[in-house]
Write a protein that binds this DNA or RNA. Sequence first.
RNA 1: GCGAGGGUGUCGGAACUGGCAGACGAGCUGGACUUAGGAUCCAGUGCCCCUGGUGGCGUAGGGGUUCAAAUCCCCUCCCUCGCACCA
Length: 828
Amino acid sequence: MPTPVVDYTLAKCARGGAEMAVSDYNPAEIEKKWQDIWEKEGVFRASRDHSKPKYYVLIEFPYPSGEGLHVGHPRSNTAMDIIARKRRMQGYNVLFPIGWDAFGLPTENYAMKHKIHPRIVTEKNIARFKQQLKSLGFSFDWSREINTTDPNYYRWTQWIFLKFFEKGLAYKAEMPINFCTQCKVGLANEEVVNGRCERCGGEVIRKVKSQWMLRITEYAQKLLDDLELVDYIEKVKIQQRNWIGRSEGAEIDFSIPNSDKKIRVFSTRPDTLFGATYMVLSPEHPFVDEFKDRIANWDEVEAYRAEAMKKSDFERTEIAREKTGVPLKGFTAINPATGKEIPVWISDYVLMSYGTGAIMGVPGHDARDWEFAKKFNLPIVEVVKGGDIEKEAYTDTESGILVNSGFLNGLTVKEAIEKMILWLEEKGIGKRTVNYKLRDWVFSRQRYWGEPIPLVHCEKCGWVPVPEEELPVILPPLEDYVPTETGESPLAKVTDWVNTTCPRCGGPARRETDTMPQWAGSSWYFLRYTDPHNDREFASMEELKYWLPVDWYNGGMEHTTLHLLYSRFWHKFLYDLGYVPTPEPYKKRTSHGMILGENGEKMSKSRGNVINPDDIVREFGADTFRVYEMFIGAFDQAIPWSQQGVKGCRRFLEKVWKLQDILVGDGPSPEGYSPEFETAMHRTVKKVSLDYERMKFNTAVAAMMSLVNDFHDAGRITRGELRTLLLILNPVAPHITEEMWERVGFEGHIYQQSWPTWDESKTVEDVVEIAVQVNGKLRGLVTVPRNAPQDEVKEAVLEQESVRRYLDGKQVVKEVYVPGRIYSIVVK
RNA sequence: GCGAGGGUGUCGGAACUGGCAGACGAGCUGGACUUAGGAUCCAGUGCCCCUGGUGGCGUAGGGGUUCAAAUCCCCUCCCUCGCACCA
């Protein structure tokens, strides 16, 4: 539809000039006003009407810490608020929910220190966060607010856990776990960062404990494969793949002389079997004890094991460390390919937790084995030709050719791997295997402030689930939240809660005193949002079918391995049980960069560089804050905060406000654009619309800034132009735009309007200025019709004195004309 | 070490499928209005030479492809993030 154009001769200044300037921009007043209206009218509530197309926008729900919101949180919120508001204007039924991931250690630690119940601390923190978020004008559907510490919520977290238990995916295991010496809790591998606790930075040691585990490894392949089904930024997919860490190879059995037992190893390079000149067991490998009798140097072995045990996983896996190890004297194995007897060692570079806890040493073709063999003078045999194994291990798998390997000689590595696997399978001494780095998930915490694990231990019946109708198992009140010295949960001290009866046999039983990790509640919260008040199921299939999957999920890069993997796992499990309608929870995932302090460092209380959004809102207003958060820089990059930059955004909004002073009257068509600005309007609508979708918020804001500057330079803006500008600016600055919309007298409210469209043919100028180059150097500019034919342009070019000067007396060798872009001449 | 992404003014950052580098904002300089200015408005602002002009040089460094390179190719350096003795 063509946009009508306003004739300036008819358009007179409606407000009569500068002496009648509108009142000053006062964000404090108008922001409160519009927030109240939105709340009263419930305009951002997702509709139960399923006839409209839906759009589910999700942000990571915040952990309500005692420090309150800092300027990092709203980056994601504002971005997704822009998407949510735009989608509503595009006619979607939008779900943009909010809630609280409120279980967790900082609250518990605070409660311990100040002797206040964590529930009270949590409530207080939530109230603060809520007030802060509301002051920023996000279009959340507050009627669907959830809280993971609400028994009505964690009832279903417990329920899902029981499903895992029923299906055998939750199991108890006696195993060495990562234990944070400061928090006194067990940690998942994912929570250990550089040998320290991800949350508190405390030292992590290995401790053998009986723990509840979730069998996420069962879903490794699905979690990997189904990344194909989703639209995540590539970086995130790579991280997920890395973490799952699939590798293909073979398991091979090495027989032990005078024993039925075999040492099983996993190798991705079975082709190098002929080059295996020794074996290495992990110090924890059970064979070390089993074959104690044969081991001549037991004292030495035992000392080494004790040493290894003391080391944290981090120390053990530090790559810079020199290899250590001890031979198991008297204990040997047979290389099944060569038939030779080879020595067996123990070394801590072999991990019990990966593969089989044992490896075959192929020093010619594995860098670690090479280093080990060099140090301990073990034989190095070349079985793949192509490198110099005297200097380093030859690990290339592309161009090497097998040698010294019997039936494999002459083959490429790829062929040899296949042939070797067939040979192993034929002989019954090995088979094709896939291994994953992913480990099962340590799911219990010996802490108070988490969901109680709803199981009861009965002497007779073993572990028995609490019946569904008795859920939730409520956290009992407590005097003291300190874990016991042995690392037991403080719940263990509440004897009248712990002692109960077995739901199966009625006999005496004890409750599980461990609680769930913080990841539990956040693994399914997006499901609850679809039907948050349901007290019969975690969410009805009807609502789930309508709303799932989440259309767009944005969050921090720091959650892309753990939270994303865990929640995908829970979702897939529920999908297999028929409780959710989609195999994947999130259709699209993006990530935002961190906001740093003004000194370029990570914002933290200890560094003293925290910026509180409340102060910004008080001084500049929420709209300025939002505009700045989006304008600050590329959305996916970490960026330092700048108080100066905030001021610039406030100035921009002042200029927007002052457009009221230069508004020209109704004219023949109030919706029209002036000829002068027609192209700019269509172009800006296009740019802003597309930039929002691509999360290029900074350039979208810049485009609107330019446009506003141009209106002030021109000294006039038509109602049609202002109307469109307010619509496209609204998602970023919702309060000022609603207020101006009302003051100028446009119909209804912006939240009831449709998103403006643009006419592609009107986004380009009819007449353009193009550059003229001579021998690659800019020598002039000509203004010509956009699609002018070459000879017409040439004429204009030759009229230019500045160009002719470089052509005189020269021979033109080549001319290149790109319409609308450039006219390039080459001379000799 | 492996994988991914980067290196552009004083700063944050722009630049479509190669086509006038530095949009927009900040800062800075000068001016106007002012009792005042941390308000507002106007002008300037990549570097070098120059009275001005047109001129030369410029996107980490070096080389290449092209009429034309921040953008494509090769080499080197540096930074950020993720993984890291995973057999």
